[in-house]
Computed example of a mutant assay.
Amino acid sequence: MSFEYTPPKYAQLIAEMERRIESGEYPPGSPLPSEHQLMAEFGMARPTVVKALGVLRDNGWIITQQGKGRFVRGRPALAAGGHPRTGRELLDRKEIPATTRLVLVGLVKAPRRIASYLGIDGAASVVLRKTVVLQGDQPSEIVSAWLPAQVAEGSALAASEELPQGVRRLVESAAGVGLDHIIEHLTARNPTKEERDLLGVTASAALLDLYAVACDATGKPWVVLQTVLPGDRHELEDAYPIR
């Protein structure tokens, strides 16, 4: 005797929605069909559709924006190990007043490196958020968030107040996309005059300059997080599988 397994209807809908998102039929940032449209297309009751959409949201495929509807995030973020990665930590870090000093929030011309990482014209302007992170009374690092103006303007990202939540959620909400992966670039150099003043280091000090470019599932960059670290105050450690 043979048995055929038929997945429950909500699971069938989940599988089909994931297929459409992965194929690009529903690209990141695009609105999902309404509950009524899905009910009509798949011949399912509303509770079944709502259950499927809830699973897709919880698993990171879609997001819900109050008063606007549901939008595609893209393929869920790449699986990561238990070791915290610098770029991801920067993306989720809150600007806590006790340990963070907000130095600058404003519209600036994108430096050539930032324009290249964001894939924008070299003459374009970006919103820059620059903070100094303190350890005790000593400045520990300078963290800058570089954002396309059309994403940041009009949101908390462009406000002259500390962010109570990480940049990730604010960018995803403002852009209507899901951030999927980070590409990191690490260089070493001497400090600029501004960095000497902010960090209290000498002109010959060695700095680590790390750029974390956060992209959606299609590879489109949405924000660059930069952290400038005095070499004598930090040690970077990473751990990852080799098979």
Rank of each mutant, 00 (worst) to 15 (best):
L157Q: 07
A206M: 13
S30A: 11
L78K: 11
R233S: 02
P191F: 02
L134F: 05
K9Q: 15
P33Y: 11
G87A: 12
R168V: 00
V133F: 14
T100Y: 04
G24P: 01
L198C: 03
A40Q: 11
R46N: 12
P7H: 06
L91H: 10
R75L: 04
L32A: 09
E35V: 13
N190E: 14
A115K: 05
G29N: 06
P111E: 04
V55Y: 10
P31S: 01
V224E: 00
Q37Y: 10
Q150S: 12
G154W: 04
G122T: 14
E195G: 08
K9H: 12
C215M: 14
F42H: 13
T218V: 03
T187K: 09
S2Q: 13
T192M: 09
L170K: 10
E162Q: 06
R129C: 00
A203E: 14
S23C: 02
R73N: 14
M17Q: 09
H234I: 01
G231E: 10
K51A: 13
V50P: 08
V55K: 15
P27A: 01
I182W: 03
P27C: 03
V108G: 03
R101P: 01
G24Y: 09
T6S: 08
Y5G: 05
E237D: 09
T227N: 11
L56N: 03
P97S: 07
P33C: 04
P221S: 01
E162F: 04
S144I: 11
E41G: 08
L90T: 12
L163Q: 06
R73K: 14
T192Y: 09
S30Y: 06
T192R: 12
E237I: 12
R168A: 02
P84L: 08
P221C: 00
R70D: 04
T6L: 15
G166Y: 01
I142S: 00
E161H: 14
S155R: 04
T192G: 07
D209K: 09
H83T: 15
C215T: 06
L210W: 08
A52Y: 08
N59C: 04
A15T: 12
V201K: 06
L53N: 02
R19M: 12
L104W: 11
L170P: 03
E195K: 00
V55M: 13
Y240L: 12
D238M: 04
R196L: 00
I114V: 13
W146N: 05
P7M: 12
G176Y: 11
A158S: 15
G81S: 07
L118Q: 02
E89S: 13
V223H: 09
P8L: 03
E16V: 08
A80D: 02
G54I: 01
S2D: 12
A152Q: 10
D137E: 12
T227K: 03
G200N: 03
H83A: 14
V224L: 00
P230Q: 05
G74K: 02
K94E: 15
L198Q: 01
T131Q: 05
D232K: 02
